[in-house]
């Protein structure tokens, strides 16, 4: 049963790395949103540090929204998804593997890029580990929850705005705890509480979201 997980994960990662351009686009989008922001607020360092938690997390949410639309689309269009649904292997496990591959190719990139970006915003260096930890725990949850919305809107070719209405309300807890951990770390306060809660959300997501994703895929393919 686990072999199907690894097979799907390997296949999706291979596809992702064959199209390096897309990987770079994720990164560039993230960098651009963060880099353009100071041009709007002015270069006052205090303002930038104050808004940096919100800015980083909004950039992550928007990037997730844009990239999630491609999560099942190619498989849906070339019929692979139907074969997944028909196969005797549990669909939830396949969905989990797809989300894991998606996260390795996008969320992990944000985690890696975040130290550079927050230092660019003038965030003190002692906050960087917490920021990376919050992104590490938060972004997979975004992928898992977002995949439910993507799977539900699979039959709609242009679902971008609708998708934002479906998944942004569900992103509220991750946003609150993720940005909360960042804010606490910048202020020099303990951030462990928020990180634990992000971890709890991730555990809940990993265990329950794949079932919902599988159900949503089946509904969309009916």
């Amino acid at each position: 049963m686990l072999s199907v997980f690894w097979a799907v994960l390997r296949r999706d990662l291979l596809l992702a790395f064959r199209q390096r351009g897309v990987l770079v686009h994720h990164l560039l989008f993230f960098v651009l949103v963060v880099a353009l922001f100071p041009l709007g607020t002015g270069a006052d360092a205090r303002i930038l540090v104050t808004v940096s938690p919100a800015l980083i997390w909004m950039a992550v949410l928007l990037a997730a929204l844009l990239s999630l639309q491609r999560l099942f689309r190619p498989d849906y269009e070339d019929g692979t998804l139907e074969q997944y649904v028909l196969s005797p292997e549990p669909l939830a496990l396949i969905a989990l593997a797809k989300v894991a591959a998606y996260w390795l190719a996008s969320g992990l990139v944000f985690v890696m890029a975040s130290p550079l970006l927050v230092l660019l915003l003038g965030v003190p260096a002692h906050a960087v580990p917490v920021i990376m930890a919050s992104l590490l725990l938060g972004t997979p949850t975004l992928g898992l929850v977002g995949a439910i919305g993507t799977a539900l809107t699979l039959s709609l070719p242009r679902a971008g705005l609708l998708l934002s209405l479906l998944i942004f309300p569900l992103y509220v807890p991750v946003l609150i705890f993720g940005a909360g951990a960042m804010r606490a770390a910048i202020a020099g306060l303990p951030a462990a509480g928020a990180l634990y809660l992000l971890g709890a959300l991730l555990a809940l997501g990993i265990t329950t979201a794949p079932i919902a994703i599988a159900a949503a895929l089946k509904i969309s393919l009916e």
Binding site: V145, I148, L152, S220, E222
Partner: peptide
């Protein structure tokens, strides 16, 4: 039919 089932799942997740 599909719309109602999709909404059912969304309401449950919500």
């Amino acid at each position: 039919r599909t719309a109602a089932r999709a909404c059912s799942l969304l309401a449950l997740v919500g």
